[in-house]
Computed example of a mutant assay.
Amino acid sequence: MPGQRGRLWAGVRAVVFSRYGGPEVLTPTEVAEPTAGPGRIRVRVRAAGVNPYDYKVRSGMMSNGAQVPDAPVVPGQEAAGVVDQMGEGVTGVSVGDEVFGLGSRAYAERAVLRAWAPKPAGLDWPQAAALGVAGETATRILNALALPQGATLLVHGAAGGVGQAVVQLGRVAGLRVIGTARARNHDLLRGLGAEPTTYGEGLPARVAALAPDGVDGVADTAGSQLDDLIAVAGSADRVVTIANYSAAERGVRFTGGGEDASAALARVGELAAQGRFAVRVAATFDLADAAEAQRLSEARGSGGKIVLIVQ
């Protein structure tokens, strides 16, 4: 993967876009330092996660035809780093602490986090940065499904960052997990405790062969094959998606975040420290190469998390 470019930067490095388009609209530049407001902390970013949401925003897919707001936009929802500023009312953390968490404008040397947890011992910075979005989203999906111990869960798109997180947290909760992925990622899923199958045509029959009595819930992280997923679940209300924005028209629940993530981050941090939860980092890029990182993310074939390194 691309490495350090050797460029000397002054000020706060960041990657921004000022118009919607392909990865080429992402530009390394300098921005003003953000400030931690009430209930927030600021970190010196050591690594930032790259998520599908990032390229969807950059491409204009989420804009509903509006122009880019408050250009230039700094992408990024999650980071791991060292606390260097605390907002009013923040307790339980100190300047100098190593944390991971969720926030905004994370493709930068400094980022403000709205929710965080201690960086798990034994994890490097890219591994810690990969925990936030995947861990919180997976927790939210499983809470929405509310499956009892021993139930069978199908995870559609199980080899991606969120998919892997759902598999692992599902197994921790005592669920039987079946996961869809490309054949090359089936060993990865087996290693996480899932029974793998491929997606595409014939999915309901393949799932029925693995689970003749059916599945109790479906976690969709891919956004495809909605009709097949409903058929597999037996009812639309037993499917939860994070990737199909029109799913509600079919009675499928869409979950998009917005809740307090602190408890979820603390839980996945504890599991990671115990060696019971991890998000596979498939590729790392220098911050200045964020365009290449998003290009790989958009191709949706990485088999894990993509992370930007900030030196």
Rank of each mutant, 00 (worst) to 15 (best):
Q4V: 08
Q4K: 08
L8W: 05
G11C: 08
V12A: 14
S18K: 09
P23R: 14
E24S: 15
T27K: 14
V31K: 14
A32E: 15
E33R: 15
E33N: 12
P34K: 11
P38Q: 12
I41M: 11
V43W: 01
V43G: 06
V43N: 01
R44M: 01
D54Y: 12
M62I: 02
M62Y: 13
S63I: 00
N64G: 10
Q67W: 01
P69Q: 01
V73S: 05
V73I: 13
A79W: 03
A79K: 05
A80G: 13
M86G: 10
T91I: 00
G92W: 03
A106I: 00
Y107F: 09
A111H: 01
L113I: 01
A115Y: 09
W116D: 06
P120E: 06
A121N: 00
L123A: 05
P126D: 01
Q127Y: 04
A129Q: 06
L131F: 04
A134T: 05
I141V: 11
A144D: 03
A146E: 06
A146F: 03
P148K: 13
P148H: 08
Q149R: 12
G150F: 10
V155F: 12
G161Y: 02
V162W: 07
V162S: 10
V167C: 07
Q168I: 02
L169C: 10
V172F: 05
A173W: 09
R176G: 03
D187S: 14
D187E: 15
L188C: 07
L192M: 14
L192Y: 12
T197I: 04
G200A: 11
L203K: 06
R206A: 14
A211E: 10
A211D: 02
P212C: 05
V215Y: 02
G217P: 02
V218K: 06
A219M: 07
A219H: 04
Q225F: 10
L229F: 02
A233M: 06
G234N: 08
S235Y: 02
Y245G: 04
A247W: 04
A248F: 02
T255C: 05
G256M: 03
A261E: 10
S262L: 06
A263D: 13
A264K: 09
L265S: 13
R267P: 01
V268G: 09
L271S: 12
F277C: 10
A278V: 06
L287T: 05
L287V: 03
A288Q: 06
A288S: 12
D289S: 14
A290K: 08
A293Q: 11
L296N: 01
L296P: 00
E298P: 04
R300A: 15
S302A: 15
G304Q: 09
G304L: 13
G304H: 14
G304S: 13
K305W: 15
I306L: 15
